[in-house]
């Protein structure tokens, strides 16, 4: 620890020897991390969304409009006793209309064109989504039910999208990881070449390899963290803009923006730190100084 000030000073000197190249490298690394962050953000948002939909999974059961209240209650009781049904609730015509008004927001004016309430009453059934098929089978055997609307297609499509994003994400993470390692190790090798005389002198004076190499590791760490911060800045702006633009215009709820940004910040900094140290060590190991 006694040399920590020296190491930082050396790292700064190494950076300044090839300043332009190093600044351009920060931008390259920043863009690499931006790609990584974008894919990770998309994966994370969709994953959160599916989990949210799974927790909120429900089926809407429609019955004949002229059904009497006694029969509706009886139908609700029949549904309630089915295993894995969590909650059964009647949504009457007025509430159904009100919900659509909330969903449509400014566009709800279109509903004023109708002379009467066009919406039907229905029974909202909260379920364990994993048991959807079994529950549907049981519901279909109840005669009083006219129509069942489930979200299975939506959930399945999202699940498929997540699988695709996971594959793409793994590929992108691997590609960006390798790219960053190569970029950093190349910069470190260049730094070693530029400082070869100093390194040789230190070796002749008996300096341990760790003493010689530490400033280079610091430089690599600095470059990737700076690149990571740049990427995070762009992600921050992107997410804020995206939430501002689409947050209020889509029907599905998005994860909290603060949580998303915090998670992305930690992820980018961690990844940049690990890749910076890894790339520097790789560069040091692969460089041969005569």
């Amino acid at each position: 620890m006694k040399n920590i000030g020296y190491f930082f000073k050396e790292a700064r000197t190494i950076f300044q020897v090839d300043r332009l190249s190093n600044i351009l490298s920060i931008f390259s690394i920043g863009l690499i991390f931006l790609i990584l962050s974008t894919i990770t953000t998309a994966w994370w948002v969709s994953h959160q969304l599916v989990n949210m939909l799974r927790d909120e999974a429900e089926i809407n059961v429609f019955f004949q409009e002229d059904m009497e209240d006694v029969n509706i209650n009886s139908l609700m009781e029949s549904i309630g006793i089915i295993g894995d049904v969590k909650e059964v609730k009647l949504v009457d015509k007025e509430e159904s209309h009100q919900r659509m008004v909330e969903i449509l927001g400014k566009e709800a004016k279109v509903l004023e064109l109708f002379d009467s309430n066009p919406f039907q009453a229905f029974i909202e059934v909260k379920i364990n989504v994993e048991k959807l098929d079994t529950i549907l089978e049981r519901l279909e055997s109840i005669e009083a039910i006219d129509y069942i609307r489930d979200n299975k297609d939506v959930i399945d499509k999202l699940q498929n999208l997540i699988s695709l994003l996971t594959i793409v994400g793994v590929l992108v993470i691997t590609a960006t990881g390798i790219s960053t390692l190569v970029v950093i190790s190349h910069i470190i090798r260049q730094g070693i070449y530029n400082n070869r005389e100093q390194i040789n002198t230190l070796r002749l004076l008996g300096a341990p390899e760790s003493f010689i190499g530490f400033p280079f590791v610091l430089e690599g760490l600095f470059l990737t963290v700076a690149g990571g911060l740049l990427a995070f800045g762009l992600v921050y702006l992107g997410v804020k803009t995206a939430y501002g633009q689409i947050g209020s215009n889509i029907f599905i709820p998005l994860p909290h923006m603060e949580d998303l940004l915090k998670s992305m910040g930690v992820f980018i900094l961690f990844a940049s730190g690990v890749l910076g140290i890894g790339g520097s060590i790789f560069g040091l190991k692969s460089a041969k100084v005569n």
């Binding site: 006694k2 040399n3 020296y6 230190l202 004076l205 008996g206 300096a207 341990p208 003493f211």
Partner: peptide
């Protein structure tokens, strides 16, 4: 620089 990595207090 010749002393930094020797066993010598800073």
């Amino acid at each position: 620089l010749g002393l930094r990595f020797l066993d010598m207090p800073s």
